[in-house]
Design a protein around this nucleic acid. Structure first.
Length: 255
DNA sequence: ATGGTGGTCCAACCA
């Protein structure tokens, strides 16, 4: 089973890229973030035409997540219990006996800002929700745009970036709290090329210089991680015309 | 370099 995540930065603009990519990569499950459209206008038929079911939790202009799958998704959850939030950033479904938690973690903007505080509160609430989901589902995957680079090798210039947004101690501690539940960052379970990143700012030729961060992650429960056979980043779509600023991240499982 | 580019939607916000 092949599971992937991709922040598309507007599904309206990137629909042709997503359709092209699924036709060749053939993931069983694809978690999309920043679809930036209302659930009511989600292009469902475009995906059924290429053999995918789809479920979305969207809003106008910002945020929004959707999950594509070969098999139909069941038992959707779109809100973190006890965390009142109009922003559409989570979509939990069960597909092929795997609990799939698709996330668009808040960006945080800058340290000390209201958005930063919101990010940390959101992650704390998520941690409590995931503790419950972990107990209920042996095979659970938490994937998406975490807006956190786990460690220095996930940053193109860790000295220059320092402890700025995406790399601050509080953000990394919040991610560590998720890993302490038993979740495994499967990308790091395999040998990887130096300077492996999933996001490159549009500005200042960052992709051309491979000045990126690895902030798109696939975390698996222990039983699922034990079945992971490969994980990698597909940089190719980042080089396409009018690309998303993120690349797809993939994990393969012997399921 | 407190900039640069890109999406949403046409002013200003978000990333």
């Amino acid at each position: 089973m092949k599971i992937a995540t991709w922040n598309v930065n507007s599904l309206t603009v990137r629909l042709p890229h997503v359709l092209d990519w699924v036709r060749t990569a053939e993931p069983d499950i694809l978690a999309l973030q920043e679809i930036k459209l209302l659930t009511e206008v989600f292009p469902l038929e475009s995906f059924t035409e290429v053999g995918y079911h789809a479920i979305a939790s969207g809003q106008k202009t910002y945020n929004g997540v959707a999950t594509l799958s070969r098999e139909i998704a069941a038992d959707p959850v779109t809100d973190i219990p006890g965390f009142d939030d109009p922003q559409r950033r989570m979509l939990v479904t069960t597909i092929d006996n795997v609990r799939v938690v698709n996330l668009y973690v808040p960006n945080g903007q800058r340290l000390g800002s209201l958005k930063y505080e919101y990010k940390l509160n959101w992650l704390a609430a998520l941690r409590n929700f995931l503790a419950v989901e972990m107990a209920l589902h042996e095979h659970l995957v938490v994937l998406g745009d975490f807006n956190i680079a786990p460690a220095d090798p996930d940053v193109y210039d860790p000295v220059k970036w320092g402890e700025d947004i995406h790399c601050s101690p509080a953000e990394r501690a919040a991610l560590k709290e998720l890993l302490k539940l038993g979740l495994v960052d499967v990308f790091r379970e395999f040998e990887q090329p130096e300077k492996s990143f999933s996001w490159w700012d549009y500005r200042a030729g960052r992709f051309r210089r491979n000045a990126g961060l690895r902030i798109d992650l696939i975390l698996a429960s222990p039983a699922l991680a034990a079945r992971c056979t490969a994980s990698y980043i597909d940089r190719e779509p980042r080089g396409w015309e009018r690309p998303s600023d993120h690349a797809p991240v993939i994990a393969e499982f012997g399921l």
